[in-house]
Design a protein around this nucleic acid. Sequence first.
DNA 1: TCAGGCGATATTATTGACAATAACGCGAGT
DNA 2: ACTCGCGTTATTGTCAATAATATCGCCTGA
Lengths: 230, 230
Amino acid sequence: MKPQESLTETSTLTREEEQAEVIRRLEEDIIFGRFAPGLRLVEDTLMQRYGASRHFVRQALFQLERQGIVLREKNIGATVRFYSAEEVRQIYEVREMLTRQAALMIALPAPASLIAQLNELQRQYCAKADAQDLRGIHEANDAFHVALFSACGNPYLVRSLQDYMNLTLPMRAKNLADKDGLALSRRQHELMIELLRGRDSWALAQLCVDHMQFSKADYLGRIAGDGGKR
Amino acid sequence: MKPQESLTETSTLTREEEQAEVIRRLEEDIIFGRFAPGLRLVEDTLMQRYGASRHFVRQALFQLERQGIVLREKNIGATVRFYSAEEVRQIYEVREMLTRQAALMIALPAPASLIAQLNELQRQYCAKADAQDLRGIHEANDAFHVALFSACGNPYLVRSLQDYMNLTLPMRAKNLADKDGLALSRRQHELMIELLRGRDSWALAQLCVDHMQFSKADYLGRIAGDGGKR
DNA sequence: TCAGGCGATATTATTGACAATAACGCGAGT
DNA sequence: ACTCGCGTTATTGTCAATAATATCGCCTGA
């Protein structure tokens, strides 16, 4: 047994994990709406809330700023970022473009190994959905899409796609709790796997783009409701 | 007069500028080949070289890691990142795709104000080229392209495009010093402005993609020469 | 009553000291 | 001669104190 296992991990986790945990919890608080857009994220407050040192909280804020869900202004502080309808449309425009391109690059019919992998991920997704585990649903869902698009063969394209998936996280989060939206997503995932067995790349690409319309429309409807108040 | 102007700026620049300056110098040292790929970037060494505190050097390394030209490994240190031929092809594949899409989204014929702006930027580009100011050439060149693609109307697409421009910086740098490459670039820029006056979006898109082939091919040739040694 | 500045307070930014970690070399045992 | 383990060193990671900065309320003078 390594020495630090008995010493460091007795009560708490290693630092690297602690850092990841702070990021995870802050991200969760934001995307699941516990922290409303515009809310000030004061370092001291977060230090208390997550029981972490200023250093880690700082790092987390930097990371989430890069991810686009936190806004930091020099000498002023961090706030939960709000996206206007216009911005949402622009973000989705790029995301749809990248998605379509990646889908078209997937060689059809896809190898059995990929199908098997996606079936397994889809199984996990359904399990989390049944368990109503919000965080789990989101992670399983993203894992499914990353695995799917990785088949396009270009890791840089996948990375950019992931960037936009992270950026749209606040818009997609509400749908993870929605029963109808969840059922639709499930069916679409299964349809994607079906199409991977065929040769119609265009149908696959179109389905992938359609797949993101529900949450986009829903979010746009929601912020139109209160007129972009903040 | 504000108090800090006479106090802080007497001998040196303000902190924010200092941070930017460290990033700029480190980036320059890497892209212009003064720091070879694989070279270890020790914080203490850089602190001395740039006369900056550990904090700023650290930030710079983080920033350049995000930009993709520095590789950081936990508890090991930072090195100048090297890209294999395969990776370069993949990076350019995405960059070309984004470029084509952005170009196609520019409404033609373009407004006179855009043409005027680009003509001015092109003038500056030529001036820097004549002055053999490497850094200046690169900055003027990027400013030209950002201004051009901003006309596509989607700032997020422009940001992603900029990400890839930064990523390909080490590959493009050598061409800024090359007389023939520079002359070709100049002509292509002028041709772009010409095409903005017409209505042929496809020709413009194709020219923009062609515009990046020279440095890509050159870089691939160069690393094929020494067989991806490091 | 209102404009403007001044001080108090809240918050982030910076720093240098210190802790943790991994790479390296050296020496002992086989 | 070779390898395994241990101590040393080089390097990054973390922290808590301190400096810098912006915001807001209050007070004064016209």
